[in-house]
Design a binder for these strands. Structure first.
Lengths: 166, 166
DNA sequence: TTTCATGCAAAATGTTTGCACACGA
DNA sequence: TCGTGTGCAAACATTTTGCATGAAA
């Protein structure tokens, strides 16, 4: 993985799983084996992923930890609702990333290698709030994606030697 | 009309149709009845629309001007490629709007009535370019959508008016 | 023991493709 | 004529749903 995700973290009192359990209890929903498995899997690594990525990860684990496709979709929606994940639409499908315990940020998206580079800018937030105020618009969030080609994909290279592939 | 689209226009030498024909010729593609019909329909009104909206409009016109679904999709992709339309992903599907002859802008999206409100900000562009420079990222464009609830939908009223935009 | 969640299969949605025929250049 | 575009039907990718069964509380 060649990505820089070092935006730091945000202080949170509970682990993602604890937070999700709290959310579930507050809605009289159940804390099931599958929901626990998904939260654990999702928060074990910081990266962008879609429903199929997650499903594949869950399917390759053994016995007890298998989760069906519908449950993956249903649980992802709940995690977004609970504020644990952020969802964005990329190339026609939903892509997810950590929200809980992770600072607000936006993305550069490379159209060659599909990489998502995170960046953080206080200005975006300020601008957003100013525009919204002007339109008497109640903000719930925003998505800013800058499309283009990343540094690596711009650098013309004749061939990828094994060393380059890291 | 509840929307403010008065961002003005950008000076262009050719009509959208002329511009598209130029594009087609430059790629040895053909100027067909269907392609002409679609460009005319699309540029007859300034509004946001998706493939199904356009198809419905085309299907309800008589005889000669009917265009099939695959051709609508194929032509929309060509119009985006030709720089006549801008595409954005909203709620899992592609939404289009005029690009040629229309100034750069971003959107506020109301999650209640689904309305898209346009706004223009030089700051977004500057910020975008600054961030890109910092990451040696070659920018091709960006999409900024501010999600939330618009002024009308915030004002509690007993009856909802029909949504006039995608 | 009473819900609510799960898994399965099937459906729904939005979009793309293979192919025979039509048509613009 | 030649080669590209069209329309049809079918395929596709992603996500959602109905329903019988299984498991939290």
């Amino acid at each position: 993985m060649t990505l820089d995700f070092s935006l730091g973290t945000v202080e949170v009192a509970l682990t993602p799983l604890e937070r999700f359990e709290e959310y579930l209890r507050s809605r009289q929903k159940r804390i099931t084996k599958q929901r626990r498995t998904i939260v654990e899997q999702v928060f074990s690594v910081h990266r962008h992923f879609d429903a199929e990525d997650l499903l594949a990860l869950l399917q390759q684990t053994v016995g007890e930890r298998k989760v069906s496709r519908p449950t993956v979709y249903r649980t992802l929606a709940e995690l977004v609702d609970a504020g644990l994940l952020r969802e964005m639409s990329l190339k026609g499908r939903s892509v997810y990333e950590h929200d809980y315990g992770y600072p607000q940020h936006d993305h550069l998206h490379c159209e060659k290698c599909d990489k998502l580079i995170e960046f953080s800018s206080e200005q975006v937030r300020q601008l957003r709030d100013a525009v919204a105020r002007e339109h008497q618009f109640r903000v719930r969030g925003h998505r800013l994606i800058i499309h283009g080609v990343c540094a690596e994909c711009s650098r013309p290279r004749r061939r990828l030697r094994p060393v380059d592939l890291v």
